[in-house]
């Protein structure tokens, strides 16, 4: 490509990048403003005074507990989801059995259920096994509801893995489990990292399930903690902004880490090709 072409390409790419980074800038400004400024002023204007006390207020509101809950619930659900989905993808794409098509269909249907349809039945199910107000209910729900999409994303990759790998492994006397954990899983690192990122975002930002199944303060997560600043007649938007900033930071860090994995994974799986 020639110079002008590259120039235009970069101009476009950077323009898009600006557009994508704006919400973060806006959110940060937002978190330092008062209610009046947030509504009346331009979204990207600097705050008239930097209200760091918004952060103080949020911190005093016991955000640390919410934060900790968000972290462990997110991580636990990701581990279960990605592991189970990888196993299922392996079984569906690599193993030979009659019902695999049907089972795949079931997962696809699982993708389609609107969560508000499931909410009330789920509540009564958890109630009957005494899992209401128990974070385990949240971990299980996140895992189940993210399984279909995670599986779908993994499938495309599992299909492209060469069959020679298994053949070679089987000939070498390798067990199925060893093949899966030692060969297949490492080969899918890039896509696993992708699904981890996606799961992380979903779990971290989810609030309908937590709000419904959890009632004790000690089990609530960050997104539900934000609700603390939304009142019947009044809402403290500055504090909400501060909570959003605090809650997005760890996910950005984790995201950068895992998104590097997407690339690294390729060099580490030199097996193929």
């Amino acid at each position: 490509m020639n110079r002008i072409g590259y120039f235009f390409l970069y101009a476009c790419l950077i323009a898009v990048a600006l557009f994508q980074i704006l919400p973060l800038v806006w959110l940060f400004m937002f978190s330092l403003k008062s209610n009046a400024e947030i509504f009346a002023g331009s979204p990207f204007s600097l705050p008239s005074e930097f209200r760091w006390e918004n952060y103080q207020k949020v911190w005093d509101g016991g955000i640390a507990t919410y934060f900790f809950n968000s972290v462990w619930i997110t991580v636990a659900a990701i581990v279960l989801t990605v592991l189970f989905a990888s196993m299922a993808a392996f079984a569906i794409t690599r193993m030979r059995w009659k019902l695999s098509g049907l089972v795949l269909g079931l997962f696809m249907v699982g993708l389609m259920i609107p969560i508000h349809s499931a909410l009330i039945p789920l509540y009564s199910m958890f109630l009957s096994v005494d899992l209401i107000d128990n974070p385990l209910a949240i971990v299980l729900t996140y895992t189940a509801y993210n399984l279909p999409i995670t599986l779908m994303i993994l499938l495309g990759f599992y299909y492209t893995l060469p069959h020679e790998i298994e053949e070679a492994a089987v000939i070498d006397g390798c067990s199925v489990n060893r093949m899966f954990f030692r060969i297949i899983l490492p080969m899918t690192t890039p896509i696993m990292a992708t699904t981890i990122v996606i799961n992380m975002i979903y779990n971290w930002n989810e609030f309908v399930f937590v709000n419904t199944f959890i009632s004790s303060e000690k089990y609530k997560t960050l997104t539900v903690g934000i609700q603390n600043f939304i009142g019947q007649y009044m809402t403290d938007w500055g504090a909400i902004g501060a909570t959003l900033i605090i809650s997005v930071l760890p996910i950005i860090i984790a995201f950068i880490f895992f998104s590097n994995k997407v690339v690294e994974g390729i060099s580490s799986s030199a097996v193929k090709g």
Binding site: L83, F84, A85, M87, A88, F90, A91, I92, R94, M95, R96, W97, V103, L106, F107, V109, G110, I113, S117, A118, P121, L122, M125, L140, T141, T143, A144, Y145, L147, P148, L151, E166, V170, V176, N177, F180
Partner: peptide, 27 residues
């Protein structure tokens, strides 16, 4: 090896059970 029912069940069961209980029953 790749059509051993036991292995298939072992790999598919966790995910399948999860969605059956938590998605299909509510559905």
């Amino acid at each position: 090896v790749m059509s051993n029912k036991l292995f298939i069940a072992f790999y598919i069961a966790p995910a399948l059970l999860m969605i059956t209980i938590l998605i299909f029953i509510p559905l």
